[in-house]
């Protein structure tokens, strides 16, 4: 059977687009498209400003629907709630599924976003086995990571410093 060259060309073009999507996590997200949260936790805010109040907490792997871009923010909808989420915390669903793997039912890992098909918690675990001298360092890293600063503490610090 003779191959249909027009079909092949169309497929090549389609693959090219898919390849580009897979390789560009910072792709601009189109209105109406869906995106996934790639950071451990993100905030859906009432205004497109860093210190504006939270309307909803988003977890890594959550899906949001893009309403419009207001760089570097996106107005988006998550489970019926609208707000603004920072673009650096999002990735289009296609690239996300290539990087993490879709259809992952019954996953027991608490953080879906950490399950990249590259460097992930399992790799860190193996690295620590390979380099046991780093253990004391990792204990300190865990202490550092556990220390968080609340939005209220920052707002009050700014007020004291005349940065309202």
């Amino acid at each position: 059977m003779k191959p249909k060259w027009s079909t092949l060309v169309a497929l090549c073009a389609l693959l090219g687009v898919a390849g580009a999507l897979a390789q560009t996590p910072t792709t601009t997200l189109a209105p109406g498209s869906q995106a996934r949260v790639t950071v451990s936790s993100a905030v859906l805010r009432s205004q497109p400003r860093s210190l504006s109040p939270s309307v909803k907490q988003l977890a890594g792997g959550d899906t949001v629907e893009i309403i419009e871009a207001q760089s570097p923010w996106y107005r988006a909808r998550a489970q019926g709630t609208e707000g603004y989420v920072h673009g650096s915390a999002l990735l289009d669903t296609k690239s996300y599924s290539v990087a993490v793997g879709s259809g992952a039912t019954g996953v027991t890992y608490a953080e879906r976003t950490a399950a990249a098909r590259g460097f992930n918690p399992k790799v860190e675990e193996q690295h620590r086995k390979d380099e046991p001298n780093l253990d004391a360092g990792y204990v300190r890293v865990d202490q550092i990571e556990a220390k968080s600063t609340t939005l209220d503490a920052i707002l009050s610090f700014r007020k004291q410093g005349g940065q309202n």
């Binding site: 993490v100 953080e111 590259g118 992930n120």
Partner: peptide
């Protein structure tokens, strides 16, 4: 998975 450079890494990586 195609990783061309560091820009393709996820924040978790």
């Amino acid at each position: 998975r195609t990783i061309t450079d560091y820009n393709d890494l996820l924040p978790s990586e």
